[in-house]
Design a binder for these strands. Structure first.
Lengths: 366, 366
DNA sequence: ATGAAAGCGCTAACAC
DNA sequence: GTGTTAGCGCTTTCAT
């Protein structure tokens, strides 16, 4: 048979097909070897002579062959897919409102790029952690995708139903921002140390009345941060004044309420550590509207280094969480060591305290 | 055979399998029908008696069955996958710097949710539009995923190599923010009208010296916006002073340079329309550092309504692009009408002009 | 070191 | 209306 476009077209036409991607079969024919040998080359298997490897690779190159993910998943045990799960309501609400949280972006950054390095792909899905449908939603995603591993972001990593389901199905998973013991790889930053770092920064500036706005209890890291705050306060000899702790839930609204309560205190705090960017922004808003200047009258430290806290006026001193790094680490563990969960304690990645304009020495007291 | 957990476990053990997801076979057995009937029910095919449908659905429900995407793609012509392509460098750079652009988020919002409605999934990938590898990268993604459709975001929608490759492979695609003629569904907002709206808003405030900072020429929408600006200026009888048009490329740096040049003009503009959030921010920065107050001395309109332009001080009057709406529309067209490209002109979605604190009447001239 | 055969879970033709 | 038969493109056995 003759070469070139004409032949190709006629074959395609004969089969009534449109120009399709090359398959492993085409490569095998082109290289004059069996399917199996091509498969071995693709998967870097042993027992192939270098000369043949070369030949096969040339054929792959020539035909622009790429293995079909679907076929590989069908035949083999691996799907080359990682599933990243975020909380549906919170994520969608964030997108809708344009609240400037870049959690998802940072996750994609770390996760997608790491996956790409290993020939994997990351599929991003939303699952409602509250609803009684968690199980159904997760089962559905797992059934459709058959991922080789799952990346759980807060608060999914602390959700017992999800952890149980994944464990039961023997699907390796990583919990981001979930440092506690349990199944799956735990990957987190040291939330307690971060809260302490925020407190210490303020103490170093001379603050003594340092308040704290918590996050939602649903997130295990909320407790860790609170403990870090309390320990740091104690260590600085600043006692345990529970009126300085306000209960928030990461939302702007809860930040407003918390800040209002704190600033109405008889012995008003000179600084607030808020465990989330929306709550920090809310605290700034309350401070401004009540006539307090930030940072002159009140210092604020944010626990999320999101774009908006950098561009607000003043810009915020903030904890930078290593979100992309944690996600990348999760992907890496899942892809390489994905077989066995290790209960050997969490993987702790470093955070940063980035000092900007929202913190300053406290005002002189009368 | 007896029911319950014991039986299930023993079967699993006999086969040496871990508890797997149910397959269509299991459902068929459970419902006492053939595979094909189950398949018909799943795909809402005709020719199944309601009673049987009921029975099959009950079995599906009971077993928690979910069809495997991979298997469906293998056997059928559809993969139930849409591929969304973003520009690699720009996207990663945005994520790394935390520049607060939420393009990707808005895309996910519109695209994922629309896909979910139809039982589809959206896979998000990065492709370098510049590199000579575009073709290789795209081929690779298409070969691995075999999407039923591709969503192109700027500037990919205007990239001839990508358009050609997709056309050649007969893969339906949608071009977001690419209104020009050509293959694929064109979905855009009226960029010219948006630029005109910005100008008109400023004219209504009393401005006459209105400058414009363009975006990169690589984006077809840049030309459309510039035309909109020019036409609106002409219509307002504000002539054609080309010194009022500065060439930017969407980057902060280009915004700095453009704004510096514009503000150094002998006959200084009293307002600037910048076709991107980073350039708007840059203009604000330049204005501030040169002692001009925004909006008292200079009004600025941003062309991206990103989180950071809302939280800056002052917050920006901005064009809101219907990113999530465009992406949702793209997904919808690809899923439903995905077979045929229509050359019947672009699908134009409405934008908004959101007035905030960065625009005000011009200062009184001496 | 290589090839041949079986089959993954499903859909697309066909039969009935 | 429903069941049967072939594959889809690969990876797994298992032969050789």
């Amino acid at each position: 048979m003759n070469d070139g476009a004409t032949a190709k077209v006629s074959v395609d036409e004969k089969r009534g097909k449109r120009p399709k991607s090359a398959t492993i079969k085409d490569v095998a024919a082109e290289a004059g070897v069996s399917l199996q040998t091509v498969s071995r080359v693709i998967n870097k298997g042993p027992n192939v002579r270098p000369a043949i490897v070369e030949r096969v690779n040339a054929a792959i190159e020539k035909l622009g062959y790429v293995p079909s993910l679907a076929a590989r998943r069908m035949a083999g045990k691996r799907s080359y897919l990682l599933l990243a799960l975020n909380d549906r309501d919170r994520t969608i609400e964030g997108w809708r409102s344009g609240d400037g949280t870049d959690w998802v972006d940072q996750m994609l950054l770390g996760g997608m790029l790491e996956c790409a390095k290993h020939g994997y792909r990351m599929i991003f899905e939303l699952v409602d952690t509250h609803s009684s449908n968690v199980e159904r939603e997760l089962t559905s995603a797992l059934g459709a995708i058959h991922p080789d591993g799952v990346i759980l972001t807060p608060p999914h990593g602390d959700n017992p139903i999800i952890r149980h389901l994944l464990t039961e199905k023997h699907i390796p998973f990583a919990r981001i921002g979930s440092a506690g013991p349990g199944p799956g790889f735990a990957i987190a930053m040291d939330d307690a140390a971060a809260a302490a770092a925020a407190v210490n920064h303020l103490v170093a500036l001379g603050h003594r009345r340092i308040a704290y706005i918590t996050g939602s209890d649903e997130y295990a890291l909320s407790a860790a941060r609170l403990k870090g705050y309390r320990d740091a306060m104690a260590k600085a000899g600043l006692g345990a004044d529970d009126s300085l702790v306000a209960r928030g839930d990461f939302t702007y609204q809860s930040g407003i309420e918390s800040a209002q309560r704190l600033l109405a205190l008889a012995d008003r705090p000179t600084a607030i550590v808020a465990s989330g960017d929306q709550m920090s922004l809310a605290a700034l808003e309350v401070a401004n509207s009540e006539g307090f200047s930030v940072p002159d009258d009140l210092s604020i430290v944010s626990f999320d280094n999101t774009p908006i806290v950098k561009f607000s006026a003043p810009s915020f001193t903030a904890i930078r969480q290593p979100i992309s790094e944690m996600t990348a680490r999760a992907a890496q563990l899942l892809i390489n060591g994905g077989k066995t969960d290790r209960e050997s304690g969490p993987d702790i990645l470093p955070f940063d305290l980035i000092v900007r304009g929202s913190t300053a020495p406290p005002p002189q007291r009368a």
